[in-house]
Each structure stands twice: as C-alpha cells, then as structure tokens.
C-alpha cells in the first residue's frame, strides 16, 4: 500500500458521519430512510429497535441510526448519542395533537450533553397529506427561534417520504453543515 492510498484511506474514514434519526412513533423515520435509499416503502412496520443503514451521499458515508419512537423505547435513545454528528428529528406534520409531545421530546434531546455539538435537521414530514402543517408553522410551534436553539446549528425542511420531495434538500443541508464543522482540516 503506497502512501497515497494510506492518505486516501484516512480521508475516506474522515468523510464518514453518524446520523441519529429520532422523533415520535409514526413520524416516518424509517420510511424517510428507505425512500431516500430508493427502497420499497409499502411494507414498513413500527421499528421495535433500530435500523442501521449506511448511505453513500455526495462522497460522504452516512451511517444512519433510526431508533424506534414508541414511548417505551424512547428511554433507550440515550444509548445511541455517543459520537453522533447530526440529529435528524422527524415530525409528523399532520399529527397536530401530539406536537406538544414532539416539542417536549425534542427539547429534552437537545439538552443532552453528548449531543451538544450535533447539527439538528428537522424534517416536517407528510407534507403530502391534507391537514399537514407547513414547515414554518412547525418551526413556530417547536420554538426553533427560541433561546433553546440559539447555540445550535439547525435547519428545517418540509418533506414527504412518500413522494420523496424535500428529502434531498434536507440531507444536503445536513452533510454540508457537518462537513463544514468537521472536515475543515482536509
């Protein structure tokens, strides 16, 4: 192995990031991940554990950890915080009833020390559904412009995992934001 290939190897390792995909149950976390990867999304059942998926995106290797969002599982989320570069928070934009829960869980998550440096990208999912709130409305309800988020790199994107709309914009923002912070040296 020549020096050049060693350097390349080190670099390719550096271009890897770990993304944690969280949100309430039924938000569409797994569907987003599968849809983004071009997989069949017709037979997705609630995640009772994790789905780990490696994606290749714009020269980056994204190790995505999608952990189930059911209330009984949420207490285990903290086991997945270590070394996380970015958090993707998925919101069911049509689930107006649980937006309060959604905000509470997000705030709790953002208060975690191990996630202090992680970029936050919010997917306002299910924009294809009638009755879905706009991403601006969700931004307001989640209080993203408040003091809790002032030291955080965050972005919010409307999307539909079913049509695929918006997914790419969100993932692009995420990889750019992380690479801007982490891969400056290379």
């Amino acid at each position: 192995m020549g020096l050049l290939s060693i350097i390349r190897k080190v670099k390719s390792k550096e271009r890897e990031c770990r993304l944690l995909i969280l949100g309430l149950d039924n938000a569409g976390k797994t569907t987003i991940l599968k849809s983004f990867n071009g997989e069949d999304i017709n037979t997705i059942s609630p995640t009772l554990g994790f789905n780990i998926k490696t994606l290749e995106h714009r020269g980056y290797t994204l190790n995505c950890w999608d952990v189930g969002g059911q209330q009984t599982i949420r207490s285990y989320w903290r086991n997945y915080f270590e070394s996380t570069d970015g958090v993707i928070w998925v919101v069911d934009s049509a689930d107006t009833v649980r937006l309060g829960d959604c905000r509470r869980e997000l705030l709790e998550l953002m208060g975690q020390e191990k996630l202090a440096g992680a970029s936050l990208m919010i997917f306002a999912n299910k924009q294809d559904l009638r009755g879905a709130m706009s991403k601006d409305k969700i931004r307001e309800v989640l209080g993203l412009d408040g003091v809790e988020f002032e030291n955080r790199h965050w972005g919010i994107f409307g999307c539909s995992a079913v049509t695929g709309e918006g997914l790419l914009d969100g993932m692009d923002w995420m990889t750019e934001d992380i690479s801007g912070r982490i891969f400056m040296l290379s």
Binding site: N26, G28, A94, L129, R130, A132, T163
Partner: peptide, 23 residues
C-alpha cells in the same frame, strides 16, 4: 434522484396508518 423518488407509489395507501384520519 429526485425524479426517481417521485416515481414512487404515491397513489397507494402509503405506509402511515394516520392517512385515513386526515383524508
């Protein structure tokens, strides 16, 4: 990529059980 994902089965029921509530 966008074009491809738009070719998905958006006319189906979709994976979300909530769909019915908001249709």
């Amino acid at each position: 990529k966008q074009a491809d994902s738009k070719m998905g089965d958006s006319d189906d029921e979709g994976p979300w059980s909530k769909n019915a509530d908001y249709d």
